[in-house]
Design a protein around this nucleic acid. Structure first.
Lengths: 153, 153
DNA sequence: CCGTATCCATTCCGATACTG
DNA sequence: CAGTATCGGAATGGATACGG
């Protein structure tokens, strides 16, 4: 008993997403990857995570298709972990999470780290995110239920 | 040993945010709250979560200031759990997570649940998110480090 | 119907030692 | 440097029984 219930088959996209990245380390690894971190040791030092756990989390993220393993860019015989397109698509998630954290989790005047968007040169905290409005035409029968109770403010 | 490292004091807003909602159930509870769920039993049924865990997670979210406890709206002597402004500010996080899940975690033709934004009448999956561009003027000395390595695509 | 309390299996995670 | 192997303690989560 006490077998953990899998969310991987949930009809809710939020639940499925959490099955992959709803875990203490996963998103921090992804955040570091966005930050340019590629090597095992860099992740380990940056996150201060035990090596065995890091090994396991990297493996899970690779299996999930969020990271990819490539031969090291320098001569060394090792590997590097880079974001796949699927992993890069997590950028808006990181940004919104960061924005929420900055706005709600820091005392006035308290310092926080910052991330600059390479393309725009602006802090990611100030990015306006564009969703894929045109993508997924959503043909009839796509949804298993429709709930019209959302507030947006 | 093996004491879990707290992220609550991390200078990274993403890490702090994950300390609160980076857990298997927290965001699903928040998602349900956005969906209009307010009662203990509703959460329990919707999430199929053990009652003791639900109790604990609700308590944590209340402590974190994401949910608030109010007297039941019907006559019953119980309580209801409603989103605080801080909790409602998580809306963009849920939306981006959902968008990512829809785009990357479902096979073509596979159905997923849907959520309609009350204000706009559109699916949240197609919302264009506006960040608080004007807020937090970010005076000098706000950041502990600046990293300019971000890719945005 | 709303929770709390207990018990226990599973999972997580840190420390450490070890290999190449 | 980049992992793997093993260990033990802590946290998570599920089942269930109980009380308001």
């Amino acid at each position: 008993m006490a077998k953990r219930k899998s969310l991987a088959d949930s009809p809710c996209p939020v639940a499925r997403a959490l099955e992959i990245i709803g875990e203490r380390w996963a998103l921090l690894i992804v955040r570091d990857a966005f930050d340019g971190v590629r090597r095992f040791g860099e992740f380990q030092e940056s996150l201060d995570i035990a090596r065995n756990i890091l090994t396991d989390r990297l493996r899970l993220l690779v299996e999930a298709g969020v990271l990819d393993v490539v031969p090291a860019s320098d001569g060394s015989a090792y590997q590097e972990y880079v974001l796949t397109p699927k992993g890069e698509a997590l950028f808006p998630v990181i940004v919104t999470l960061r924005q929420w954290g900055e706005a709600n989790l820091f005392a006035r005047g308290e310092k926080h780290s910052q991330l600059i968007d390479r393309a725009s040169g602006k802090p990611v905290s100030k990015l306006i995110l564009r969703s894929a409005v045109g993508t997924t035409p959503a043909p009839a029968g796509t949804f298993v239920k429709k709930v019209a109770t959302q507030k947006s403010r």
